[in-house]
Design a protein around this nucleic acid. Sequence first.
DNA 1: CGAGACTGTGTTATGTTGTTGCAAAGGCGA
DNA 2: TCGCCTTTGCAACAACATAACACAGTCTCG
Lengths: 167, 167
Amino acid sequence: MTGGATTGSFPAPGHDHAHCIEQAIQRTEAAFSTRGMRLTPLRRSVFIEIASSHQALGAYEILERLSKKKGRLAPISVYRALEALLAAGAVHRLESRNAYFACHAAHHTTREPVILACRGCGRIAEVPGEEVFEAIKTAAALADFRPSSSVVEIIGLCAICDRTQEH
Amino acid sequence: MTGGATTGSFPAPGHDHAHCIEQAIQRTEAAFSTRGMRLTPLRRSVFIEIASSHQALGAYEILERLSKKKGRLAPISVYRALEALLAAGAVHRLESRNAYFACHAAHHTTREPVILACRGCGRIAEVPGEEVFEAIKTAAALADFRPSSSVVEIIGLCAICDRTQEH
DNA sequence: CGAGACTGTGTTATGTTGTTGCAAAGGCGA
DNA sequence: TCGCCTTTGCAACAACATAACACAGTCTCG
């Protein structure tokens, strides 16, 4: 469970960050391209800001960080970039914290990911959850309910934060 | 799966609404009492407003409805009442919609409920989801992650809305 | 090339959701 | 009654998100 930096798990302490981000950008470029969308400079900046944090960032936090680097930027611009990145699947939204995180996983094989959000360091992991979604389907069917989408977010402590004391 | 109005499922079309709300209030009174908390008039009003809607209501929607009935009310008052009701377990928060709904279920037997949110009529059901949470525990353990709480919200259509056309 | 459509961004203002800080009111035990 | 604690009222504010409009780039069809 260590060493892999782009598997959707939490990044290992000494992971090759530059390489990891580089790969994420390439996946994002591919995602935009296959959808006939454009990964414009603004969208790219927003994505890099999110991805390199390895965290879920609020829109205004992204705004603040980008403003420092590139000067004035309006909230709506960030939201529009986020909208495109969400549509391309390059970032996801963490509902329970009104925040956005980069999709580091290559989980295109699984239906939907289960999201692990560490309340210690704020980092996010996406892990496959076939069984979870199967169980959800079953529970919904029992209630005569037709599901269209699911929000599954697990809050807790990653291995590192768990060891270095509860927060 | 029909007829029971207080089991956590969606209320049946002809359910005994007054009785259903009455029971919910009694459960809430019990919940406050066992926690040494007070179910004050304001908290009771807020709870009734939520419970009788059978929906997830935004805080400002609750505010508006109560204002009409009882005159001026500040947001903070609603939020404080919600805080108490959440603490008592009388209402839950629907993270994916920033809304609050009454706990109609007597799910004190299950660990955590799975939430079904109908995007047609806005109504909410809570159903047992042992298997879902077991699968979540397993997925988290595989990622060396220690979960402390989970958000599991299923968006879709209830049986009635599903029949009366997609929305 | 030039007109029109489309997409993306900038600017300003506004809407929605949730909180802070302080003061007054009310319950409750000593 | 006094003192303590919880609850509520009030005003302002912070955080999150969108609306409306203008304009620049780019693509395409003629």
